[in-house]
Lab assay of single mutants.
Amino acid sequence: ITFYEDRAFQGRSYETTTDCPNLQPYFSRCNSIRVESGCWMLYERPNYQGQQYLLRRGEYPDYQQWMGLSDSIRSC
């Protein structure tokens, strides 16, 4: 899974293949995501807390595409 700070896969990015309890050191906001394979559970707060979103393989050019309430993703 790759997270992008800006919409349409622009700006600083961070890629991971494992669970991350705290994504804050890698980016300040998340406006687009690419899921290369599988399913990922994302959380608005660190340590798997807050609103959660299940994303399947695909491209999400805007946080509203995954029904996000904000551009805050802090763990996965």
Results as ranks from 00 to 15, higher is better:
residue 32 S to G: 02
residue 32 S to H: 01
residue 64 Q to N: 13
residue 4 Y to T: 00
residue 45 R to L: 05
residue 45 R to A: 09
residue 38 G to H: 03
residue 74 R to A: 13
residue 58 G to N: 12
residue 39 C to Y: 10
residue 56 R to Y: 15
residue 32 S to R: 00
residue 49 Q to Y: 10
residue 66 W to H: 10
residue 40 W to P: 00
residue 72 S to Y: 11
residue 24 Q to K: 08
residue 38 G to F: 02
residue 56 R to T: 14
residue 33 I to E: 01
residue 61 P to M: 11
residue 72 S to M: 12
residue 71 D to Y: 09
residue 73 I to L: 12
residue 25 P to H: 03
residue 43 Y to V: 00
residue 76 C to Y: 01
residue 65 Q to N: 12
residue 68 G to E: 08
residue 33 I to M: 15
residue 50 G to E: 02
residue 32 S to F: 00
residue 23 L to Q: 00
residue 11 G to I: 00
residue 66 W to V: 12
residue 4 Y to S: 01
residue 74 R to L: 12
residue 24 Q to S: 11
residue 37 S to I: 14
residue 11 G to M: 02
residue 63 Y to P: 14
residue 61 P to T: 05
residue 55 L to M: 03
residue 19 D to T: 05
residue 19 D to A: 07
residue 65 Q to L: 06
residue 8 A to V: 07
residue 3 F to I: 02
residue 15 E to G: 07
residue 72 S to H: 04
residue 52 Q to P: 14
residue 61 P to S: 11
residue 11 G to D: 02
residue 57 R to C: 15
residue 2 T to G: 03
residue 29 R to F: 15
residue 48 Y to S: 03
residue 71 D to H: 06
residue 35 V to S: 02
residue 35 V to W: 00
residue 73 I to E: 01
residue 53 Y to A: 05
residue 58 G to L: 01
residue 20 C to R: 14
residue 17 T to S: 08
residue 56 R to L: 07
residue 41 M to G: 08
residue 11 G to P: 01
residue 76 C to K: 00
residue 1 I to V: 09
residue 25 P to S: 13
residue 43 Y to G: 01
residue 59 E to V: 08
residue 73 I to S: 02
residue 42 L to N: 00
residue 16 T to L: 12
residue 23 L to N: 01
residue 47 N to I: 03
residue 71 D to N: 10
residue 66 W to R: 09
residue 58 G to H: 02
residue 71 D to L: 12
residue 33 I to F: 08
residue 40 W to Y: 04
residue 57 R to D: 14
residue 73 I to G: 03
residue 74 R to D: 15
residue 8 A to P: 03
residue 65 Q to R: 09
residue 18 T to N: 13
residue 65 Q to W: 05
residue 67 M to N: 07
residue 41 M to F: 15
residue 75 S to W: 00
residue 62 D to V: 10
residue 70 S to W: 13
residue 34 R to W: 08
residue 71 D to M: 05
residue 56 R to V: 13
residue 41 M to L: 08
residue 51 Q to G: 08
residue 3 F to Q: 00
residue 35 V to M: 01
residue 41 M to A: 07
residue 2 T to M: 05
residue 25 P to T: 15
residue 63 Y to T: 06
residue 73 I to M: 15
residue 18 T to M: 10
residue 51 Q to S: 10
residue 58 G to M: 03
residue 6 D to K: 14
residue 32 S to D: 01
residue 30 C to N: 06
residue 74 R to N: 15
residue 11 G to N: 15
residue 52 Q to C: 05
residue 13 S to H: 09
residue 38 G to S: 11
residue 22 N to T: 14
residue 71 D to R: 10
residue 28 S to N: 13
residue 69 L to F: 15
residue 54 L to Q: 14
residue 48 Y to E: 02
residue 70 S to N: 10
residue 55 L to K: 01
residue 47 N to A: 13
residue 44 E to Q: 13
residue 56 R to F: 15
residue 19 D to C: 08
residue 34 R to E: 02
residue 14 Y to G: 02
residue 59 E to F: 09
residue 53 Y to G: 05
residue 27 F to T: 14
residue 30 C to F: 04
residue 49 Q to V: 06
residue 54 L to K: 13
residue 64 Q to H: 15
residue 34 R to L: 07
residue 36 E to P: 12
residue 52 Q to D: 15
residue 35 V to Q: 01
residue 4 Y to A: 00
residue 36 E to K: 07
residue 5 E to M: 14
residue 1 I to L: 02
residue 20 C to K: 03
residue 4 Y to V: 00
residue 15 E to P: 07
residue 43 Y to W: 05
residue 10 Q to I: 03
residue 76 C to I: 14
residue 41 M to Q: 13
residue 55 L to T: 03
residue 57 R to H: 11
residue 2 T to I: 14
residue 67 M to I: 06
residue 23 L to S: 02
residue 26 Y to D: 04
residue 38 G to A: 10
residue 50 G to S: 03
residue 5 E to Q: 07
residue 24 Q to N: 08
residue 59 E to G: 12
residue 22 N to S: 11
residue 6 D to F: 04
residue 18 T to S: 13
residue 21 P to K: 12
residue 69 L to I: 03
residue 69 L to P: 07
residue 61 P to V: 07
residue 10 Q to T: 13
residue 70 S to C: 15
residue 21 P to I: 12
residue 24 Q to I: 08
residue 33 I to S: 01
residue 55 L to V: 08
residue 32 S to A: 06
residue 14 Y to T: 04
residue 28 S to L: 07
residue 16 T to P: 02
residue 38 G to W: 02
residue 67 M to F: 06
residue 62 D to P: 02
residue 67 M to T: 10
residue 73 I to N: 01
residue 56 R to M: 15
residue 23 L to A: 04
residue 39 C to Q: 06
residue 74 R to K: 10
residue 34 R to D: 02
residue 71 D to Q: 05
residue 40 W to V: 14
residue 61 P to A: 11
residue 41 M to S: 14
residue 40 W to A: 13
residue 22 N to H: 04
residue 4 Y to R: 00
residue 74 R to C: 13
residue 63 Y to K: 14
residue 5 E to V: 06
residue 44 E to K: 09
residue 33 I to A: 13
residue 15 E to F: 09
residue 31 N to T: 08
residue 67 M to W: 13
residue 10 Q to M: 03
residue 39 C to S: 14
residue 16 T to V: 12
residue 67 M to K: 08
residue 15 E to A: 06
residue 28 S to W: 04
residue 7 R to F: 07
residue 47 N to C: 04
residue 66 W to A: 13
residue 65 Q to H: 07
residue 45 R to G: 14
residue 29 R to P: 02
residue 68 G to F: 02
residue 58 G to K: 04
residue 20 C to V: 05
residue 44 E to G: 12
residue 45 R to Y: 15
residue 67 M to Y: 07
residue 40 W to M: 02
residue 69 L to C: 14
residue 63 Y to S: 08
residue 2 T to H: 02
residue 40 W to E: 00
residue 19 D to G: 06
residue 6 D to A: 06
residue 9 F to A: 05
residue 20 C to S: 15
residue 26 Y to F: 12
residue 66 W to Y: 14
residue 42 L to Q: 00
residue 34 R to S: 05
residue 16 T to S: 09
residue 62 D to Y: 09
residue 13 S to M: 07
residue 4 Y to N: 01
residue 30 C to M: 04
residue 43 Y to L: 00
residue 56 R to N: 13
residue 71 D to T: 08
residue 2 T to W: 04
residue 49 Q to R: 07
residue 25 P to Q: 08
residue 72 S to K: 13
residue 75 S to G: 07
residue 54 L to P: 06
residue 56 R to H: 15
residue 23 L to R: 00
residue 47 N to F: 06
residue 62 D to T: 08
residue 65 Q to S: 09
residue 55 L to Q: 02
residue 50 G to W: 00
residue 8 A to F: 08
residue 28 S to E: 14
residue 8 A to W: 07
residue 38 G to M: 05
residue 55 L to I: 13
